Computed example of a mutant assay.
Amino acid sequence: DPVFFYYLLRYLKPNFVGIARNKQTTGLGHITKRDLENLEAAYPRLPEQRAIAHILGSLDDKIELNRQMAQTLESIARAIFKSWFVDFDPVVVNALRAGNSIPDKFTKRAARYRDNPDELSLSEEIQCQFPDRFQDSELGPIPERWEIGPLKQIASLSTKTIQPKNDPLKLWVHYSIPAYDDGKMPKTEQGQTIMSGKYLVPKHAVLASKLNPQFPRVWLPMQDGIEDSICSTEFMPFIPRDSDERNLLYMFFLSDVAQREITNRVTGSTGSRQRVRPKDIEQMNILIPEKRLRIIYSDLTNGLIGLSLEKQDESATLANIRDTLLPKLISGELRIKDFERFLGKVA
């Protein structure tokens, strides 16, 4: 069964790694077609293969569905952030209503809303919180009464280091770069398996990678079990000075504006090991909207971000179940009783 074969290859991955290491002389080790052909593996008859493939595949299907849902919810929150705090759509609309001048940078958006005045679809209660004029700044035209200031004005950097190996049997929720790249699912690991120092993940933190910022990695950790949460020192844990503004801080780091500014501060000459200095990011000048608008944004997006986090957390649980079942089912340690009947029920 092709799906079973996929999980069999995942089960055999340690063998591939071992072969590659044994053959390694310089650079990266590798395996050949002959290495694969010479591997031996036991496997059950086809009906049981299909039953195993169905169980593991159903878990992966649900993980993927959750990923898509979380991504959609987050995309909505990002679109609102861009509209309010990058394109300044509500300010453009208010300026049009008041007959005030609009900077050349926003003339296309002004034409769009002049022709479709109700397109923005904001409630009047929120719309009236935005200014109706622009002012000049070092970052170009910005809404009136908004400020330019360092990131540290709204968020602080937290780099409290811990050695998980000093508590070898404790289970840690580990936010690592590989875990981010593998679907943004933190791994639960014993302290004895974590050899290097890590940062504690404080409550309300937003994690932004300082490694190779041309490939943005921004992570919003779950808040449960925070005393057991750690992250790679390749992440920069930032805490909003007002916990209600966590969503805004998260979306700021995800924005193209922030990522462009972060990339401009890169040090290091090689593409694979470029970094930014966290203190440089903390001092980075950013646009700071009025306090009430920052709170309104976070309140408005709490449901979206909260549900997105729930989906990610559920996926992490399902992935742990899958990773526990996979070696037991593939090796035959755990067998499916009456798998023909099982397959009949799920057909």
Rank of each mutant, 00 (worst) to 15 (best):
P2A: 14
Y6L: 12
L8C: 10
L8V: 08
L8N: 04
L12H: 01
L12Y: 04
P14V: 02
F16D: 03
F16Y: 12
V17Q: 15
K23V: 09
Q24K: 13
T26V: 14
I31P: 01
I31Y: 06
R34F: 04
L36C: 14
E37C: 09
A42Y: 11
P44K: 04
D60W: 01
D61W: 00
D61S: 07
K62A: 12
K62M: 13
I63Y: 03
I63F: 06
E64R: 15
L73V: 00
L73H: 06
E74H: 09
R78G: 05
K82H: 10
F85P: 00
N94Q: 13
L96W: 08
R97N: 10
R97E: 15
R97P: 01
A98Y: 05
A98Q: 10
G99C: 05
G99Y: 04
N100K: 08
S101N: 08
F106S: 09
R112W: 12
R114W: 08
P117Y: 02
S121T: 05
C128G: 09
C128D: 13
Q129K: 13
R133M: 13
F134G: 05
L139Y: 05
I142G: 01
E144S: 12
I148A: 02
P150L: 10
L151M: 09
Q153L: 12
I154W: 07
L157I: 00
S158Q: 13
T159I: 05
T161A: 14
I162A: 02
P164K: 04
D167W: 07
P168C: 04
L169T: 13
H174V: 12
Y175W: 03
P178S: 04
A179Y: 03
D181P: 02
D182K: 12
K187F: 08
Q190D: 07
G191M: 09
G191W: 01
Q192L: 13
S196E: 07
S196A: 07
G197M: 02
L200I: 13
L200K: 15
V201K: 02
P202H: 06
H204R: 05
K210R: 10
P213A: 04
R217N: 00
I226P: 01
S229P: 03
I230W: 00
I230M: 00
T233P: 01
T233S: 05
E234L: 01
S243E: 10
D244R: 15
R246D: 01
N247K: 00
S255Y: 12
V266I: 14
S269F: 07
T270C: 07
R273I: 11
R273E: 04
R273Y: 14
R273V: 09
R275L: 11
R277Q: 03
P278G: 09
Q283I: 01
I286T: 01
L287T: 08
L287Q: 08
E290D: 15
R294Q: 09
Y297H: 07
N302Y: 12
G303E: 11
I305V: 15
G306T: 02
S308T: 04
S308R: 04
E310H: 11
K311R: 13
E314M: 05
A319E: 15
A319C: 13
A319L: 14
N320E: 15
I321D: 06
R322Y: 02
L325M: 05
P327D: 00
S331G: 06
S331Y: 05
L334P: 13
L334W: 04
L334N: 11
R335V: 14
I336N: 03
F339E: 14
R341I: 02
F342Q: 00
G344N: 12
A347C: 05
A347S: 15
